[in-house]
């Protein structure tokens, strides 16, 4: 048995992972979440702002990581709209514009009273990587002559007086890498004392924890935190508890649970093989 497992073709491992992820998705199995203090901190950052506060929503990711980050972007958008905040969308990633469109659709479909140009606006893609952050911090008009739809910024109430982002009440960033959360902290939030929260991939989150709480109010790390955020949102706003669309993160925790259990199982089996082979001595098979 040990010898069979020791020489197991890796395609069996791939197949097991496929089943571990596929079964919970198809069965729709769901689990409750207990939001951590870190997630509650992020929630309070948006919740405690007075109605009508200005929120810059920087969505710096692309389709590669939308499975992990779109639930966060959607939850942030719903929360900000629910609180009646003024939302400015932008992205530093060339493939980020369609990601913004997904959030815009949420506003358009679920908040029909929200008026484009008065309550929310899509500034679109800002080229220049971290240089673009410096640009919007100092001189937004130099970076964006119009919004993403070609409207002059002077023609919309939300942007006509906007010269830079230094007076934003909150900076919300959803980030899959560079440029992203770290650069927003370094070039915008810290030098200009702008309150900031971020949602990031699990890989990136550990590098952002050192910024809490001075330079970052909170971090949502990976899909687990997205699910917890949806849970807090559902408790605060019960209408989200009945909306399937508002529970994308929660739905993805089923596959995460089974996949993690599989990983643990594989590591345990791998170590059993290792210790059995070690006990047999060099080159010894029985």
């Amino acid at each position: 048995m040990i010898d069979v497992l020791s020489n197991l073709d890796r395609r069996w491992v791939f197949a097991a992972m496929f089943v571990a992820v596929g079964w919970p998705i198809l069965s729709g199995v769901r689990f409750k979440e207990e939001p951590s203090e870190g997630v509650r901190r992020v929630f309070r950052a948006i919740e405690d702002l007075p109605e009508g506060s200005t929120v810059l929503m920087a969505l710096d990711y692309d389709p590669s990581s939308q499975g992990e980050l779109q639930p966060m972007a959607s939850a942030f958008t719903r929360h900000a709209a629910e609180r009646g905040h003024k939302i400015y969308f932008m992205t530093l990633w060339p493939a980020g514009s369609p990601m913004i469109e997904r959030s815009l659709r949420i506003v358009e479909q679920e908040y029909p009273d929200y008026v484009y140009g008065e309550d929310y606006v899509n500034l679109g893609y800002a080229p220049g990587l971290e240089g673009a952050i410096k640009a919007v911090v100092d001189d937004l008009r130099g970076q964006f002559a119009t919004d993403a739809r070609g409207n002059s910024l002077d023609s919309m109430p939300l942007t006509e007086g906007l010269r830079n982002i230094q007076n934003m009440d909150l900076l919300v960033n959803v980030s899959a890498g560079d440029p992203g959360a770290k650069q927003w902290v370094q070039y915008a939030a810290t030098p200009h004392d702008i309150a900031m929260v971020t949602g990031t991939t699990g890989v990136q989150a550990p590098s952002l924890y050192p910024y809490i709480p001075e330079q970052l109010d909170g971090v949502l790390g990976a899909i687990k935190a997205a699910a917890e955020y949806e849970q807090v949102l559902s408790v605060a706003y019960p209408k989200f508890a009945e909306s399937v669309k508002a529970q994308e993160g929660l739905r993805r925790m089923g596959p995460q649970l089974v996949a993690h259990l599989l990983m643990i199982g594989l590591i345990v089996v791998g170590n059993v093989i290792y210790f059995v082979e070690r006990s047999r001595g060099p080159g010894g098979r029985r």
């Binding site: 197991l8 890796r10 491992v13 791939f14 097991a16 992972m17 496929f18 992820v21 692309d62 389709p63 590669s64 990581s65 939308q66 499975g67 493939a95 369609p98 996949a259 599989l262 990983m263 594989l266 590591i267 089996v269 791998g270 170590n271 290792y274």
Partner: peptide, 26 residues
């Protein structure tokens, strides 16, 4: 582009599982 990019990223789960099975030893 979206499904292709997401697929490439998702395949990582399989490689991570395989690597953990073969290399993550005490």
């Amino acid at each position: 582009y979206t499904p292709l990019a997401a697929t490439m990223f998702s395949i990582l789960a399989c490689f991570v599982a395989s690597a953990a099975f073969r290399a993550f030893r005490a």
